[in-house]
Design a protein around this nucleic acid. Structure first.
Length: 512
RNA sequence: GCCAGGGUAGCUCAGCGGUAGAGCAGGGGACUCAUAAGCCCUUGGUCGGGAGUUCGAUUCUCCCCUCUGGCACCA
């Protein structure tokens, strides 16, 4: 089965923060799970490099936009490497492939009458170089001093007709929900989107005159304009998957991938992904069955409040990895938040979860198991049946169910129930006592094999969460078999298999 | 103002008609294979406030307070 998932593309105007990192880690975990399952995964992520703010920031630094963007982009690329994000394609919007696709899409929609040119009048901040809406007005109804000089200007722009699609979109959203395949996940966000669609009025401005913004993709039908924001950003999901918008084009490769699961933050559900995107696709001729699904995640708050530059509470994920390691960072981001909801970030909590779950529970289980196998049997295990096999199979099934529903935190819990059960099993069977009594030799063999097998299976289950550590565990188990969900079957460790030496995979973080 | 979702143990949250659960933190214990890890037991809550429906409500209904999103509006 083919599985296509994307993340939002990050705006290259500033350094990545923990929110960017969370989204990619979440998507990566889902992608890795589907690979384990045997799906042909196409995982697309990238950066949004055009636009006003980039142009301004570049100007401020006295460099060309392309150069500025390359610098920030490299920060993202290096972070994804650090975090073990394994994507299949990289969407950078300055890419010529993307540019061609966007222009072809614009041309097609222009020719089919989805755009019109109109005069727009409004309050414009010269300093910020943007139109202001009533939202920007202060409590006194005036535009605050942060906007500088505000003038009323008129400007011609191109608009995308949205209003005519309102009823279709409502029906589509309802139909998907009724079919048990909500357009938006978790489904509590469907109501929020529906609400917004109900109130949909007016069209979408899709251009900026070059006199005001040069750093963008030129409209193919009017050289004086570049396209602004959404036709540039959203279309990355199709342009980098091989889509050719030209009517009648052969899109076999693209269609083998599409439709996608878009992993996005709650801030960009309404209106871009929930309204503009499906309408853009429809205008391009996509049918209802060719519409994507949106997986909307929540935010990490810092000490209860939003992360923001002005509050100076931005958490740098690269720094986090440097201090605590990839495993601690990924594990924390995936386990301490319920998909779709918000959570509170704290380093204390990260350390706690790491020490409790990784070092004490899983790490110690591996360490004590290998140590006993080595001490009592020279590292060799004898294949045998286990009283834990059924329990483990049950938890594997629960793990899969949760992963399929993108409830990664719940899947992690299922895996950790196996660890808890194994640690309890060690206490119940007390191998150190069995080892003293030659009559218990067979029983001891059974316990040691059970622990080794459980750890082998666990190493598969945690692969999507902490791939590097999973590999380290397999290496200590000296297991070189393939790593797929099918390998979670009990009893694949051969009779007489020789385990490796115990070395702590998750050294405790000692905090003062 | 409107829509949605919260307010349950010190903390993070689950439960959702029969007077409450988990993990972590706190307290106690037995053990020793292990990263002073693991295991067992345990303290702890008038389930935001009020009214109603019910034999019975944390769980359903209504009102209020409060938090979080989204939308709208105004001088």
């Amino acid at each position: 089965m083919n599985f296509f998932l994307t993340t939002a593309i990050d705006y290259t105007n500033g350094a990545p923060h923990i929110g960017h990192a969370y989204e990619k880690v979440l998507a990566d975990a889902i992608a890795r799970y589907r690979r384990l399952k045997g799906d042909a995964v196409f995982f697309l992520t990238g950066v949004d490099q055009h636009g006003q703010k980039v142009q301004q920031s570049a100007q401020k630094q006295g460099v060309a936009p392309a150069e500025f963007v390359a610098g920030i982009t490299s920060q993202f690329l290096s972070l994804w490497k650090t975090l073990d994000i394994r994507y299949d394609a990289w969407a950078a919007t300055v890419d010529p492939v993307h540019k061609h696709c966007v222009q072809a899409m614009l041309q097609r929609l222009w020719e089919t009458g989805h755009f019109y040119k109109a005069k727009q009048a409004g309050y414009y901040s010269v300093r910020q170089e943007q139109f202001l809406t009533d939202k920007e007005r202060g409590p006194d109804g005036e535009f605050g001093p942060e906007w500088g000089e505000v003038v009323l200007i008129e400007e011609e722009n191109y608009f995308f007709k949205l209003a005519g699609h309102r009823q279709w979109l409502l029906d589509f959203i309802d139909a998907r929900s009724a079919a048990g395949k909500p357009f938006v996940l978790p489904d509590f966000r469907v109501a929020e989107l529906r609400n917004a669609v109900e109130k949909l009025s007016g069209d979408l401005c899709i251009s900026r005159p070059k006199s005001r913004l040069e750093w963008g993709i030129e409209l193919p039908f009017d050289k004086d304009f570049v396209t602004y924001v959404w036709f540039d950003a959203l279309s990355n999901y199709v342009s980098f998957a091989g889509y050719d918008p030209t009517p009648g084009a052969d899109n076999a490769v693209f269609h083998s991938r599409w439709p996608a699961l878009h992993v996005i933050g709650k801030d960009i559900l309404v209106p871009p992904h929930g309204i503009y995107w499906p309408i853009m696709l429809r205008a391009c001729g996509f049918s209802d069955t060719e519409m994507p699904t949106l997986l909307v995640h929540g935010w990490w708050n810092i000490a209860g409040s939003k992360m923001s530059k002005s509050q100076g509470n931005i958490v740098d994920p690269a720094e986090l990895v440097k201090t605590f390691g990839v495993a601690a960072t990924r594990y924390y981001l995936l386990s301490d938040i319920a998909t779709g909801r918000d959570a509170d970030f704290s380093e204390e909590r990260l350390i706690l979860r790491y020490n409790t779950d990784l070092a004490n529970s899983l790490g110690n289980l591996l360490n004590r198991s290998l140590s006993m196998a080595k001490r009592y049997r020279g590292g060799a295990v004898k294949k045998s049946a286990s009283p834990l096999a059924a329990f483990i199979a049950e938890k594997c099934a629960a793990y899969c169910r949760h992963m399929e529903a993108f409830e990664v935190h719940a899947a992690i819990e299922s895996a950790w129930e196996i660890i808890g059960r194994c640690n309890g099993y060690v206490e119940e069977t007390a191998p150190w006592k069995l080892a003293k009594d030659p009559a218990c030799a067979e029983k001891l063999d059974g316990v040691l094999y059970t622990l080794a097998e459980a750890l082998r299976i666990l190493s598969i289950l945690i692969t999507p969460i902490i791939p590097e550590s999973a590999e380290a565990i397999r290496s200590q188990l000296a297991w070189e078999g393939s790593v797929t969900l099918a390998q979670c079957e009990w009893g694949l460790l051969p009779d007489g298999h020789s385990l490796g030496d115990p070395v702590p995979v998750f050294p405790r973080i000692e905090s003062k």
